[in-house]
Nucleic acid binder design. Structure first.
Lengths: 148, 148
DNA sequence: GTACGTGCAAAGAATTTGCAGATAA
DNA sequence: TTATCTGCAAATTCTTTGCACGTAC
């Protein structure tokens, strides 16, 4: 379904959004595109660091902030310990397992898709730019473990 | 609509939930009941501290954690700077203004109420205990300011 | 007296800031 | 050159932990 973006496609996306395609920015985008696991700043930094020895965490913070401001990626606050990131594609809800901490993508509830995701709309006089649905509970796998 | 709870009612709620009604716990509950503004730990501490000089922030953290674990209050992670708390029991969505940081209650989107709020249900094999909807954008008042 | 509750001080973790050097148009 | 981008170190903020004292049944 979702196909990984190649380097050229990522550069194009950055350019279209008025972002200079530095190596660091391309790398963060590429990482988020190929790892749909809602990584934290730390995970992204630790993953990229080996191949980019001079990379600093500050830069990862800077890049992520920039990408969020351009709506290329989404910031998730579902985990109260750390902020997570998700490359913006199709609208979906997020589920966090209270036991193992894993974050999963789930479909948006039915009959709501028209108002959810990244498009903007007015609600009670407020301008809504973003909608996030967070589910919290116990995941499939943890349920099995508990029953054993 | 929503009526403020008196001290006796709060004590009863705590007792029913197997919580010893200490002065600190009553005070935090009472504060959350009478201030439906989604306060942070700091705001609660700063508000109660003058009348309870020995109160410590650790205790506020402890009390809030306990109340959340008993589902008497809800923890909101809509603001990526700090965790917020809400005693409001009726199902509703939350909106945060990206400009002024204010958090407002908004109605749940239509045709969804049956699955949202605090009741549990299964979804894709996962056990959902909690559902939160977060809207982010620019509030009514900030929109007016911008247009001036 | 035993278990529980509270609160101080310290530790820990996540994020931001200030600034200097590197890079690119 | 002139802006922007990067990254180190330090600072800041939020939250948790360890532990000792207090309190209640």
């Amino acid at each position: 379904m979702t196909k990984s973006l190649n380097r050229e496609q990522i550069i194009k996306i950055l350019l279209v959004n008025d972002i200079k395609p530095s190596l660091q920015r391309i790398s963060v985008m590429q990482y988020l595109d190929s790892h749909r696991t809602h990584p934290s700043v730390d995970e992204i930094y630790n993953a990229l660091s080996p191949d980019m020895p001079t990379l600093s965490k500050t830069t990862v913070y800077n890049v992520l902030k920039l990408l969020v401001s351009k709506s290329l990626i989404q910031q998730l606050t579902i985990d109260d310990k750390k902020v997570l990131f998700d490359i913006n594609t199709e609208k979906h809800a997020h589920f966090i397992c209270k036991r193992c901490g894993k974050v999963l993508d789930l479909a948006m509830p039915k009959n709501e898709n028209e108002t959810y995701g990244t498009q903007s709309f007015m609600l009670d006089g407020n301008y809504i730019e973003e909608t996030q649905i967070y589910y919290k509970g116990i995941c499939n796998e943890c349920l099995k473990k508990i029953n054993n």
